[in-house]
Simulated scan of single mutants.
Amino acid sequence: MTEKILLDRLKQALTRSRRNLSETLNIIISRFKSVDESIWEEIEEGLILADIGVATTLYLIESARQKVARGRISDPQRIKDILKEECTKILAESSQGLYFSEVGPTVYLMVGVNGVGKTTTIAKMAHMFKGENKKVMISAADTFRAAAIEQMENWGDRVGVEVVSHHRGADPGAVVFDSLKAAQSRGSDLLIIDTAGRMHTSHNLVAEMVKIKKVIAKSMGGAPHEVLLVLDATTGQNALSQAKIFNDALGVTGIILAKLDGTAKGGIVLTISNELKIPIKLVGFGEKVEDLAYFEPRVFVESLIE
């Protein structure tokens, strides 16, 4: 996907978020003829209401104020460009592409709470990687949710990738073990492991996920190569608390932000990057299988603030 196509599609997907943030900034700035204390107070309130979060908002305001002071800037219109620069800087500092192993299959362990769109995201990933000429396999290790295995197998048929599965109620660790062996023996480039959605507040279920991670590490040295947390962008600040708990338990290496097209809370991306320093690696912005892309900080900010 070219940068221009990504920008156009993200702009469309982030319409509600952009209206929530960009239009608010424009209204505030238009009321001022010079930069004074009052404008910073209003911008601070606007950023917080856009779901950027208090800590990240204060960081952005302070960084922007310093730039304005150093440059002796008096035109309020310049503030928006400075904020865009600072937002891009925050996202770029934690930006990191997906890891691909040079030897053997690359293993991605997918985690997240119920309802975030994890299964659909995995299908989109498989489709995207196939388009990059990679041989992809999916492990249907969500053996708990009703119809989860059938859903994943249906997606596998649709995108044309092999799915390794057991019966419902089977030991997820056994499914993962068999999937790893199959991926190795069949020369797969990528193994994407689906897991049961679990509430981040359920310590027993999170502990079970830790066990699955240990099974992977024991079966294949260096794996999993990525622990990818799927977050629902529509949940806003609640996504931050989910990320903190999963990260503490599993060492999350990257975040996939789903459902950007349905939220006015796209500012949560900045909070996650600034407070947790976990790179956002992919973004989902629609229901179609091709509605997934690698995260590009500058393009994202251009889509969010104009």
Rank of each mutant, 00 (worst) to 15 (best):
A50P: 03
I43Q: 03
T57G: 06
I280T: 06
I90V: 12
V113G: 07
Q151K: 14
F246A: 04
L83P: 03
G267H: 10
I138H: 00
G169A: 04
V107M: 08
V289N: 06
Y108K: 06
D81Q: 15
S38W: 10
G221T: 11
M128Y: 13
H166S: 11
E275Y: 01
V215A: 00
R16D: 10
N274Q: 14
R16M: 11
N274L: 12
R9D: 14
N154H: 14
I48Q: 02
K213L: 08
T234P: 01
S188I: 13
E153F: 10
Q184A: 14
V230T: 08
A126V: 07
K281T: 09
G160N: 08
R145K: 08
L250G: 10
G97L: 13
S139H: 08
I90K: 04
H166F: 09
T143G: 04
T120I: 11
R298Q: 14
E62V: 10
M128S: 05
E93A: 12
T253H: 09
H225R: 03
E162M: 12
K277E: 12
Q242C: 05
S101P: 03
L25M: 14
R65N: 05
M209L: 13
K218M: 00
G104L: 13
V159S: 09
K214F: 05
D8N: 15
D51G: 02
Q12I: 14
W40F: 14
E275M: 11
M220S: 08
T119D: 00
F246Y: 07
T119R: 00
G53M: 04
L60D: 09
I39G: 07
I212M: 11
K124V: 09
T56Y: 03
K80V: 14
E86Q: 08
D81S: 15
V301W: 12
A146V: 08
A239Q: 10
L250C: 04
K118H: 12
E287K: 06
N204R: 13
R72T: 11
E306G: 15
A293F: 00
G197R: 01
K134L: 12
S74Y: 11
V159D: 05
Y294A: 08
T121P: 04
L240D: 00
K244A: 15
K134V: 09
L282F: 13
Q151L: 13
K214P: 00
A146S: 15
L229S: 01
E42M: 11
G131C: 09
V230C: 01
I149D: 01
V164E: 03
I39Q: 04
A258S: 15
E3W: 07
E302I: 10
L109K: 04
I305F: 08
L109H: 06
I90W: 03
K67V: 05
I5C: 00
G173P: 13
I256C: 14
